[in-house]
Amino acid sequence: MSLLDNRSIRVSGGILLTIAVCALAGPWISPQDYLTMDFDRQLMSPTMTGGQIFGTDDLGRDLFVRTMLGIRVTLLVAVVASAVSLVIGVAYGAIAGFVGGRVDAAMMRFVDTLYALPFIFFVILLMVVFERNFLLIFVAIGAVNWLDMARIVRGQTLSLREREFVDAARLTGVSTARILLRHIAPNLIGIVVVYVTLTIPQAILVESFLSFLGLGIQEPQTSLGALVDAGVNQMEGASWSLLIPASLLALILLCFNFLGDGLRDFFDVRHTN
């Protein structure tokens, strides 16, 4: 069975790919740029003829280019933040699962404790305390999302380390680090891919939440959350400036969730048999 036989993977993957291509190529093709203000063209409604298919914002900046740029930023933050959570989660989970025993119990107890924390408030605290920059946003969101990954990887490692090929490797004198890297890690890829697809929408959610509150991406840069925030302020006269970024954000989140569900079904042997 190929990946594309699954309808939710095909449809949501296709939509996401289309959005990503538009976001990458759009600003490059469009004659407008995201910074230029034009006070003769403030809050113009979307028109096909004028070349401004998403209209303009209150400063006369072209909303199509800004929206595409916002999607780029949103996707970039989501992917990098997920990579951060991937590295932390896989390393933590694999070590806990492989070492086992008391170390495992202590490490998992720590994860349980962290689960009880209101993380989003800590991220906000982080944004208040330090300068707001891209790097911090990546790290903060990544640091929030690694818990699920650690749990899943730990469970998988726990069962993998009992398998014969690990015993064989240990008997031939392979070091622990090398067993983890060469024998355990490759067997984790399937499950990790599925959960990364599910952490990406969570990262998007956190990023846009922060940007919406004015604590994330700062002007003149933008993201979908920041665009929704700007749209809220203009919604009485210019409803498109709210509805376009809001529906794009909703669409992207829905697609990632469906993609994750589809991938889970695809990789889950119990489902396919």
Partner: peptide
């Protein structure tokens, strides 16, 4: 579940 509060509220 997918759509965040800050999108639903303004709409």
């Amino acid at each position: 579940i997918s759509i965040p509060v800050f999108v639903v509220a303004p709409v």
